[in-house]
Design a binder for these strands. Structure first.
Lengths: 204, 204
DNA sequence: TGCCTAAGAAAGTAATCACTTTCTAACTAG
DNA sequence: CTAGTTAGAAAGTGATTACTTTCTTAGGCA
C-alpha cells in the first residue's frame, strides 16, 4: 500500500514547454469562446494548470492574450510560394493566408473590439499592421517584384489599390465568414478581378 | 420661500420621446466605449435617467443593444442616389454608405464578437445580411440595373464579384479604420478598380 | 381637479472574474 | 545529493455590474 497503483504519474511541465502549452491553451480558448468570455481560470483549466502559473508569466489577461497571438503567429509561419507565374503565386499565397489566418483575423479583431486595445488605443488597422502585415508586406511586395522582373507586369503602371486588392478582399471575407475563403472565391478574385485589372492598367 | 428659484425645472420625458432618448444614449455609449464596456448604468446616466427605466423596456443588456442598433438604422436611412451615370451613382452611394455606416459596422461587429451573438449563434456575415445588406442589396442592384438600362454596362457579362467589389472594399476599410473611408480612396475604388473591371469584362 | 401609470432616485443582491495568498511537492541545477 | 526554484492546488479578496426592490412624485388623461 506504499505506492498507489491507481495514482497517475503526475508530470510537471517547465520552462518553454510549459509556456508553449499555456499560450496554446489561450489561443484555443480565444478560438472557442472569444476574448470576451475567455477567463484566466478557463485558460488555466484548459492547460491543466492553475491561475498563478499564468500570473507568474503575464501581468494580466491582456498580456496573456497578446502573447498568445504572437505565439500562434510565430508557430504558424506563412511561406510565400514561388510557382514561376503571378497567377500561381497569388492563388497559392491567398490560399495559404486564408487557411492560416481565418481564425487569426477573426480572433484578433474580436479581441480588439472587445476592449483589448481600449487601453493601448490601437485601432484594428494598427493591429493588422503590427501583428500581421508588417512582416508580410515586404514579402508580398517581393511576389509582385518577381512578376515584374519576369516581365509579366509593369509595377510602375499598376496602382497600389490593385496590388492590395486581393489581400483586402481575402481579409474581408475572412472577417465576414470567420472561416477560410473558398477556393472558388479565391480563383474569382484572381481571375475575375486582379488579372483583368493588371491587364487593364498594363494596356494604357 | 414657497417656490425655490434655484430649483431647476425637472421635466419628465414619456413614451416615444423617452424611448428614443434611451436608445440614442445606448448608441452613443456603444460608439464611445464599445459593447464590452457599456453598462446599463452608463446608459442610464447618459440618458439622465435610471436603470429601472431601461429594464421596464428591455429585459437585458443585449435586448437594449439590439434595439439601439435598430433605432439608429431606421433613424438614419441611406438614400440611393441617381446622378444619371454609374460613376456618379457609385461615388455618391459609397460616400453615403461610408459616412452613415462607418460607426455602425464597427459597433455591430464589435458587439457580435464581444459575445452579443454568442447566444443567438449568428456570424458577422449573418449580421451583415440581416442588419445591413438585406435592405440595401436590391437597391444596389437597382443602381446597376439603371446603368444597364442606359446602356452603360452589360450586366450579363459582369461577374458578381465585380459588382460587389466596391461594397466589400468599403466595408473592409470601415472595419479596419473604424471611420468613414476617405474620398480619395472611394475615387480610387471606382476609377482604378470598378470602372476598369467593367470595361474589361465588357470588351470580352 | 384628481386618479393612475410610469419616471426617477436610491439602495441592495448575487454572480462573475481579475488578481492574490499560501502552501506543498516536483523538478532542475550545481 | 542537496538546495533553490517554481508548478500546481485551494481558497480567498475586492471590484464590477447585471438586474431587482422600494419608494416618491411628475405628468398624462378622464
Amino acid at each position: 500500500m506504499a505506492t498507489q497503483a491507481s495514482d497517475p504519474v503526475r508530470r510537471r511541465r517547465h520552462g518553454k514547454q510549459l509556456e508553449s502549452a499555456l499560450l496554446a491553451a489561450g489561443w484555443d480558448e480565444l478560438l472557442e469562446v472569444g476574448y470576451a468570455r475567455l477567463t484566466m481560470e478557463s485558460v488555466a483549466v484548459r492547460a491543466r494548470t492553475s491561475e498563478p502559473v499564468l500570473y507568474r508569466r503575464w501581468a494580466n489577461k491582456d498580456q496573456l492574450v497578446l502573447a498568445a497571438f504572437e505565439h500562434h503567429r510565430t508557430a504558424n509561419p506563412i511561406t510565400i510560394p514561388d510557382t514561376g507565374a503571378l497567377r500561381g503565386d497569388l492563388l497559392a499565397l491567398l490560399t495559404a493566408l486564408s487557411e492560416a489566418l481565418a481564425g487569426f483575423y477573426a480572433i484578433a479583431t474580436a479581441a480588439a473590439f472587445s476592449g483589448l486595445l481600449a487601453d493601448t488605443g490601437l485601432t484594428p488597422s494598427q493591429v493588422r499592421d503590427s501583428v500581421m502585415d508588417a512582416q508580410q508586406l515586404p514579402r508580398v511586395r517581393a511576389l509582385y517584384q518577381r512578376a515584374h522582373d519576369r516581365g509579366e507586369i509593369d509595377l510602375e503602371r499598376i496602382p497600389t489599390a490593385v496590388l492590395e486588392l486581393p489581400f483586402d478582399l481575402v481579409r474581408h471575407d475572412m472577417l465576414m465568414d470567420l472561416r477560410p475563403v473558398k477556393p472558388a472565391r479565391i480563383r474569382s478574385i484572381v481571375d475575375e478581378l486582379v488579372l483583368p485589372l493588371v491587364q487593364s492598367h498594363q494596356a494604357r
